[in-house]
Computed example of a mutant assay.
Amino acid sequence: MRISARADYAVRAALLLAAGESEGPLKAESIAEAQDIPHKFLEGILNDMRRGGLVTSRRGAHGGYQLARPAAEISVADVVRAVDGPLVSVRDVRPPELSYSGPAESLLPLWIALRANVRRILEGVSLADVASGHLPGEVHALAEDPAAWSNP
């Protein structure tokens, strides 16, 4: 799985909105500056997140963007899907739509298992978890493995 710049920027923007949830809407310019995200690129991302039902926007002097529901109810997977589509695909095809033959036949269950694990992690972590710094134990355990930090 590859995390695109769009997905990274979207999650970072959503986390900023989650951290300031009680303070009202944030302007795109403020989000872009705070997270060092190109403003025009962020506008497209925020529009995708709005269409995906994750943020709402309001025009005017007191306008801006805010989360459409509490941060504890929005998973990292929700944000990634809103801007990038499916979490795991192979050649832009969802694994269940693939078929292989011969020695490659076992690839399909491998891709499905990969998708299940990515889902389990990203769907199990809310914006509130990340914004508060309280990641689930399973995520901590995986990240504490020294092999997770090296590139073979």
Rank of each mutant, 00 (worst) to 15 (best):
V130K: 04
A143Q: 06
A143W: 03
A104S: 10
L110N: 09
V83Q: 10
A68R: 10
A113I: 00
V80L: 12
E73R: 13
S101R: 13
S57N: 11
G52S: 10
E43I: 15
S99H: 14
R59Y: 08
L142M: 07
G85Y: 02
L107E: 10
P136F: 02
P136D: 03
L98V: 01
M49R: 05
L42D: 01
A104N: 07
R115F: 01
L42H: 05
H62C: 03
P136K: 03
V55Q: 06
V88P: 03
A72G: 13
G85W: 02
G60R: 15
I74W: 08
S57Y: 13
S132L: 04
S75R: 13
S106F: 08
V79Q: 12
E105R: 10
A68L: 06
W111D: 04
D48C: 11
V130A: 14
E123W: 01
S126G: 00
V90H: 10
I74E: 07
V93R: 13
G60C: 11
V83S: 09
D84N: 14
D84T: 12
G53N: 08
R120N: 13
S101F: 11
H140M: 03
S101A: 13
F41N: 06
G85Q: 04
L127T: 01
S101E: 12
S132Q: 06
L87P: 10
S106P: 01
A128V: 04
G64S: 05
G64F: 03
I74S: 07
P103A: 12
R50L: 12
A71G: 07
S99R: 15
A71M: 08
A143L: 14
E43K: 14
R51Q: 12
A72I: 06
A82I: 07
Y65G: 00
L135I: 09
P70V: 04
A141W: 02
V130G: 05
A128W: 05
V83W: 12
A143E: 04
A82W: 07
V130W: 00
A72L: 08
E105I: 13
L54Q: 09
V55I: 07
E43Y: 11
G60Q: 12
P136L: 01
S126M: 06
D92Y: 14
V125C: 01
D78G: 09
G133I: 00
A61L: 15
E123M: 01
E105H: 03
I45Q: 04
P96A: 09
E105T: 14
S132Y: 02
W111T: 09
R94D: 15
V55W: 10
L122D: 04
V139A: 09
Y100M: 05
L122T: 04
A72P: 01
P103H: 05
H62L: 15
R58S: 14
L122W: 09
A128Y: 03
A61Y: 15
E73T: 07
V88K: 06
P109T: 03
E123R: 03
D92K: 14
G124S: 03
G85L: 02
